[in-house]
């Protein structure tokens, strides 16, 4: 059911020009910006990091806006009630949507790497190519699970856009997707440490430039599983609360 649901939503999202544009064109523009910034700063040897970082930023945008839109879209289509009335747990219906947003977000990573290779001649010399593939897959799945936790909070919110629009740059920044977290204020450290995006970004960076990839992948996966469990509980809680208050369609 999870697999079929994920496949269905990947196909559905992939047919939306807006989703595809956001997943591919916007990250390419951001990657171009990053490349010129890195060049201006005399860091030509780090261009592959710019491409990978910009791609990961696109994955996060896709999950963030996709998870926010997942509930809102069901609400607008009038199908949210049916999902909540189904004999299956709501989590099993919503999780494929959030994982699908992560998978379609992976278009960003592919787009920025292809763009970097073709237009700027960036050599895709990954320090650990196999680990990079594993890290990318884990990262996409992890963000999908994180998306479930976000989506559960959106059941209660009439306008999830407020949260989604406000969360894009902070997570890019704090997770060290392009800006190393060492240059950020110290108080951001504990926040970064509990975000799966931080460890996912770190795993991809280590697979690209060298470093202990597997511990980062493991931590990323562990935090994401925590998000999945929390998201499951949160989804059940907010569903019951919305039913009791009769605000599911209005929340």
């Amino acid at each position: 059911m999870l697999l079929l649901g994920t496949l269905l939503h990947v196909k559905q999202i992939s047919r939306s020009p807006l989703e595809v544009a956001i997943a591919m064109v916007v990250p390419i523009v951001q990657a171009t910006l990053a490349v010129y910034l890195f060049r201006s700063g005399g860091e030509q040897h780090r261009l592959i990091e710019a491409a990978v970082g910009a791609g990961l930023m696109g994955v996060w945008s896709s999950v963030l806006f996709g998870s926010g839109g997942a509930i809102q879209n069901q609400r607008w289509q009038g199908t949210l009630e049916m999902i909540m009335l189904a004999p299956r747990r709501p989590m099993l219906v919503i999780l494929p949507i959030t994982v699908a947003t992560g998978l379609t977000g992976a278009y960003s990573l592919l787009a920025t790497l292809t763009w970097g290779r073709l237009l700027y001649g960036i050599r895709l010399d990954f320090a650990h190519p196999a680990a990079f593939v594993v890290a990318a897959v884990v990262c996409v799945l992890a963000l999908g699970m994180f998306g479930l936790l976000l989506a559960s909070t959106f059941v209660l919110m009439r306008n999830a856009n407020a949260l989604t629009n406000a969360l894009e740059y902070p997570i890019w920044l704090v997770s060290g997707m392009l800006v190393p977290i060492t240059v950020l204020p110290a108080w951001t450290g504990p926040i970064a440490a509990v975000l799966p995006t931080t460890w996912g970004a770190r795993a991809l960076r280590e697979a690209t430039t060298g470093g202990p990839v597997w511990p980062s992948i493991g931590i990323c996966l562990a935090i994401s599983l925590g998000c999945l469990i929390l998201g499951g509980f949160a989804m059940t809680y907010v569903e019951r609360r919305a039913r009791a208050a009769a605000t599911l369609a209005l929340a």
């Binding site: 910034l37 700063g41 740059y169 392009l178 800006v179 240059v183 950020l184």
Partner: peptide, 12 residues
């Protein structure tokens, strides 16, 4: 803030 910290790090 994102671009300011990125600019600081790259010293552009």
């Amino acid at each position: 803030l994102f671009f300011a910290y990125l600019g600081r790090q790259l010293q552009v």
